[in-house]
Each structure stands twice: as C-alpha cells, then as structure tokens.
C-alpha cells in the first residue's frame, strides 16, 4: 500500500498488466522515450522495450486504426491520445471501425482496445486541451466510456479496461492527475466497468457526478451536512457507458431529490441521459424536479474565467438547496 497520485496509480496499472499479459502494448505520441506528455507511461519503455512501447508519428487516426488491426489479431493495444481534443482526428476509426467490428464480423472479431486520454478543464490549458466531450463516445454503440475520479479507482478501472474484450475510451481527469494522493494497494485490484459507487450515504438528497467533478460534488455534500444538516447520497458513476442505472434509480427512490453534475456542455450531456433514465424509472418517487449543474454550451477555455465555466461547490450547493426547498 502506498500513497499515490493518479498519474502514479495509472502507471502502476500499466506496469502490472503489461507484466502479466504479453499481448498488451502501449502506443501513442511521445509515450516511450518521453514517458507521455503527463508521464503516465514513464518507465514502460525501459522495462518492456520498444516493441511493446511505441512512439508513433503525430497521426491520431493511424494510432487508433492500426490498434484496431492489432486488436483483431490477438494484441491488446493501449493507445494514448495526448489530449482528448486531439481524439477527434481518430473519431472515424473509433466510431466507424473499433466500435462496430464485433457486430460487423458477427462476433468473429472483437477489439480489446483502450484509448486513454486526459480530458477536462481546470489547468488553464488552451482550446482543444481542456474539453469534456465524453458524450461523443458514450453515444456510440460498441464503445465503453469510463472516467475515474481518484488514484485508486483510476488504477482499478484501467486494469478492467485492459482486460475488457471490447473497446474502452478511458478519460483521465487531468486537473486531478496530481491534485491529491490516495492509498493504492500493491496487490492487483480491479473495479467492474458499468458499476457506479455510492461514496457517501444519506437519505435527503442524491448527488450524482463523475471524474474531476467528484471533488466539488463531495465538498458540496460536506457543506450540506455541516451547514444544513442535510445528508446526501453521493454517487460516482465511474462508467458513463454502460451507465449504472440501478444504483442511481435506487438512490433516487430513497431520497426523491437529485442533482446531477457534469463538466461537459449542458445540451445532450451525460446529465441529460441520467435525467431521462431517472424519469423513466423513478418518476413517481420524485419530490422535486431533477436538476443539473453543468458546463455551458460554449467552447472552453475562457482562460481568465475557466473557473466560472466549471461547476464548483458553490453552484452545486445553490442548486441542491433549491431542490431541497421544493415542497412536494
């Protein structure tokens, strides 16, 4: 057990899985000699050599396309795209090929591919370096979309992603890459993809979020307890697709009030899908309209006002209190 940052925990997952499984290889821009732009792949080249840790040209479509070809022939490529905003160049290969190969080949082929990429704001990076577009991938049948929120669950989910028989898009919240440390067990640990976690229990309100937004969401829950005497169920989705509907529905049936938080732009974002599921399955249990706190339908970053774009504890708290104020 050691206290690790998320970067170190992800690095541990890669080291341990590559040790166990010779089929796993890592490819991407600057992943080998440089150890990755955020150093997540540090030390892999030295340990596993250049056949398994591959610096590619700047060619995102080729990175994913060749990974599809390798994956259908017995390898398990873990691709790094330096920023999620660069993944659009690979979108065609993901959407048109990686996601469809199993279906198109009637099960003859499958694509055990992981696309790891840092996403999100909060580090005052530039456009294409700060965005949160998980909906593109969550909306694509055939892909799984995973977003961890802490060192420990990042490690355990990346392990599962590498063991998954189908393509997994794995968004890493770069604003908390090194923001805090957490105990991460030395022995292997995996978390199932598609399962949310209830990380705090309460009967008054449900707060649902994921990724970097778990931090302000948990802060808001703490403040509700301290300042309002309100106990919130807090759900960390961990997987956007498949979505753990059951955990969300069970909580809302208990609390009757819910606020969903995502950093992505508001329209057609993950919060909208969660709302739709809750309306379908827990409508008669609701005591107040479902609310969401999200990014805006604009292009991040706003540099000086990046913090105004990102949901923070204050915004979450305000909306939570409005929800609690509704008399049913």
């Amino acid at each position: 057990m050691a206290k690790m940052t998320m970067v170190q925990a992800l690095n541990l997952a890669l080291h341990q899985e590559m040790e166990k499984d010779d089929a796993i290889l890592v490819l991407g821009e600057d992943v080998a000699v440089d150890g990755g732009v955020f150093r997540v792949t540090e030390g892999l080249l030295e340990k596993y050599g250049e056949l398994r840790v591959i610096d590619t040209p700047l060619a995102e479509s080729a990175i994913i396309g060749t990974a599809v070809g390798m994956a259908i022939h017995g390898l398990k490529p873990v691709c790094e795209i330096q920023f999620s905003g660069f993944s659009y160049l690979a979108f065609h290969q993901l959407e048109s090929h990686a996601a469809r190969m199993r279906w198109r080949s009637r099960g003859a082929y499958h694509v055990p591919l992981v696309l790891r990429t840092p996403y999100g704001g909060g580090v005052r990076a530039l456009e294409h370096h700060s965005e949160s577009r998980e909906s593109y991938y969550a909306h694509t049948p055939g892909l799984k979309m995973v977003i961890p929120s802490s060192p420990r669950n990042a490690r355990a989910l990346l392990v599962s992603a590498m063991r998954d028989p189908d393509p997994v898009v794995f968004f890493e919240p770069k604003s908390i890459y090194r923001a805090f440390r957490e105990e991460v067990p030395d022995e292997e640990e995996a978390l199932p993809i598609g399962s949310a976690q209830v990380v705090r229990e309460g009967n008054d309100l449900t707060l649902i979020s994921y990724g970097a937004m778990m931090q302000p969401t948990l802060t808001a829950a703490d403040r509700l307890a301290e300042e309002d005497g309100i106990q919130a169920d807090v759900i960390d989705l961990l997987s956007i697709s498949p979505l753990d509907e059951e955990t969300c529905v069970n909580s809302v049936r208990k609390t009757g009030r819910v606020v969903i938080v995502n950093e992505a732009p508001r329209s057609f974002g993950p919060a909208a899908e969660v709302m739709a599921r809750l309306i379908e399955k827990s409508f008669w249990y609701l005591e107040a309209p479902i609310r969401r706190v999200t990014g805006y339908d604009v292009i991040i970053p706003l540099f000086a006002y990046e913090q105004a774009y990102l949901p923070d504890a204050q915004r979450i708290l305000r909306v939570a209190r409005e929800t609690l104020d509704v008399v049913s």
Partner: peptide, 11 residues
C-alpha cells in the same frame, strides 16, 4: 521534432 519525438522516428 514533432512534439517530443525526433523526426527520424516519425517518418
């Protein structure tokens, strides 16, 4: 150099 990788390793 393309970002952090030498040109002769990219083409």
């Amino acid at each position: 150099y393309g970002e952090g990788t030498p040109q002769d390793r990219q083409a």
